[in-house]
């Protein structure tokens, strides 16, 4: 999937070799989170978006088990260090459908908002956000989920996300 939010020069790209590693990347992001943050997830069906949110919730010390909100549209996890509001806008017709989800209220609710399929509501997204793109690399043997590698690209404008990038670049080099 291509997305015009990504210039190719921006952001830091990591490789996750397993769902556990995808969760570990999310945990690194979680350490920097504060109330009011918005995280946008992009990626095809099965790219690991819900897995990423599982890592996020666990790192925020929520004990809840995170499942896909595709049908229910939004799940709230309020038992962690910060409240986590988990949206999935896959089935929304567009940004105008957000009002009845209480989207603006959630943005102002003092927690972290994470949005799966954020490209579907691109016009409604705040400028201050962290974009997270998940892509599956060339698949190995069909059905061998354990062998699938995923590229995780993170891109945010705020200074602290640059810090995230710097930390990762030091590790990678």
């Amino acid at each position: 999937m291509t997305n015009n939010l990504y210039s190719g020069d921006d952001g830091v790209t990591l490789t996750a070799e397993s769902p556990e590693e995808t969760r570990a990347v999310a945990a690194r992001v979680a350490a920097l989170l504060r109330a009011g943050d918005v995280l946008c997830l992009y990626g095809d069906l099965g790219a690991g978006k819900t897995t990423f949110v599982q890592g996020l919730a666990a790192a925020l010390e929520s004990r809840a088990s995170v499942t896909s909100p595709t049908f229910t549209l939004v799940h709230e996890y309020r038992d962690g260090r910060l409240p986590l509001f988990h949206f999935d806008v896959y089935r929304l017709s567009g940004p105008s459908a957000l009002a009845d989800l209480g989207f603006d209220e959630y943005l102002a609710a003092g927690g972290v908002v994470v949005i799966e399929w954020a490209d579907r509501i691109a016009a409604a997204l705040p400028k201050e956000r962290l974009d997270i793109m998940l892509e599956e690399e060339e698949a190995g043997a069909a059905g061998d989920e354990a062998a699938v590698r995923r590229r995780v690209t993170l891109d945010g404008r705020e200074a602290r996300w640059f810090g995230l990038r710097a930390a990762w670049e030091r590790e990678v080099c």
Binding site: L73, R91, L92
Partner: peptide, 12 residues
């Protein structure tokens, strides 16, 4: 028509 639930339609 939209291939899914549309909350705006639902609530209105």
């Amino acid at each position: 028509r939209y291939g899914g639930v549309v909350p705006e339609i639902a609530s209105r």
